[in-house]
Design a protein around this nucleic acid. Structure first.
Length: 125
RNA sequence: UAAGUAGAUUGCCUUAUCGCUCUUGUGCUGAACUUGUUCAGCGCUGGGGAGGAAAGUCCGAACACCGUAGUGCAAUAUAGUGGUUAAUUACCACCAGCCGUAAGGCUAGGAAAAGUGCAACAGAAAGUAUGUACAGGUUAUGCUGUAGUGAAAUCAGGUAAACUCUAUGUGGUGCAAUGUCAUGUAUACCAGUGUUUGAGGGCUGCACGCUCGAUGCUGGAGGGUAGACAGCUAAAGUGUAUUGGUAACAAUGCACUCAGAUAAAUGAUAAGGUAUUUUUCUACUAGUUUUUGGAGUUCCAAAAACUAGUAGAAAAUGAACAGAAUUCGGCUUAUAGAUUUACUUGAAUA
RNA sequence: UGAGAUAUAGCUUAAUUGGUAGAGCAUCAUCCUGAUACGAUGAUAGGUUUAGGUUCAAGUCCUAAUAUCUCAA
């Protein structure tokens, strides 16, 4: 699995997103929150992932774009650490629920913590 | 030199690594059949990839659909004169009024002798008007002047960003428009209403009139889809030169092709630099103060301290407002700074 | 992306067609009580979200902005 994040791995289907939020489970590591759902895709990928930032907390589109880009970048660089052992397919949505603008190191440390919690929870089941 | 006025241009850069999106060319694999094309996936390679406001959605258009015959009423917008434009409530020129010492700025700037309304408080009185006091004048009254209230007070005025009148203009809905394909379902159930005795729809505010019209229409409670492609980026395009015009702008020539995403691309990290800001040091220039020396009653020279400016060096800082969403033309609002043109006023010097 | 609505004391709200902004709760003081609550009396607090304009006069009319909320496949 390479360090790329092409279109195929993005969560785009409106239907799937609605299912994800109604049926999915979540773990959080402030200021991040991960909503996940075990499912199956037609494409040959392990996970489809989307990111989201609330308009309520960040008024301007520039701030929201910046945070979403950081989240995508950190996800891209770190996903191989956790997903090589997983066999089933998942849909993910990463939400940023904080109210201050973060930098790359903060996002990276919290993202790692988030996926450690996630894989811990998966292995329990 | 200080303070200002009106514009114009610009809106950080370089390298490396890892990525995102669109796309030219090309190779491999698979599918379809019309058998050499098309489509899909993967790889290699080359190229493009946010703004002056992309924002607000305040105007105007293009474009698309609504089965665009019509008449009347209503509603609504605009308002000096002339021009520009695809078009406008935009822009340009001129006139008038107000503000400013000036350069300049602002103005919905038609009509009150067509009609209706409104004017708190104060004041005799704010139009079914003309009172009181004093003075003038008169036989006396009418009359004339002054006074006080108020924004406005006598043969009338004000107010139309009050109704209105006049002139000119206006069909509605917005790319979530609209078309094609794919997937999937319920022409089922309940209540009301209707089928030539006409429900309801269209002409999109209303009426008339015209027209369509039956597995219909309205409500309830539910079922399904929510994907792809087109629309979609070569245009009232950008740059530049010449000519015409006071100008807005127009015409012609030459050159160029410059985002197209859709839970929504244009990024991340590292290193270095520029603008800016702050501090310190050095040099120069100007001013003030003090001391010393000369001259001798306000001048000259030197030194020190402080202040200001300019230049250089070192350290720290490290770029405002803000992110395309069908496309254009304006307007409005946000914006660190940098560059630059013209003009005005004051002071000083020549 | 498009289409709308609202904004008045700390809070909830009035203001009849432009005429100079009221109520209730809350707060403070005094009275009542041994003290508190309830009750009574009085007082304070607003340039009506912001900036311009029209008018003699603007919460009200006009224009622009800001914030909050709603609707549309």
């Amino acid at each position: 699995m390479s360090e790329s994040y092409p279109k195929k791995e993005k969560l785009k289907s409106k239907k799937l997103i609605e299912r994800l939020f109604s049926e999915g489970q979540s773990v959080s590591a402030f200021p991040l929150r991960l909503v996940y759902l075990q499912t199956t895709f037609d494409d040959d990928v392990i996970a489809k992932t989307g990111v989201s930032v609330s308009k309520r907390n960040f008024k301007t589109a520039v701030d929201r774009n910046r945070i979403k880009r950081l989240l995508r970048e950190v996800y891209r660089l770190n996903k191989t650490l956790y997903f090589n052992n997983i066999t089933t397919q998942y849909a993910f949505m990463i939400l940023y629920i904080g109210k201050d603008k973060p930098n790359i190191t903060q996002v990276e440390s919290r993202m790692k913590r988030l996926f450690e919690k996630f894989s811990g929870k998966i292995s329990e089941q």
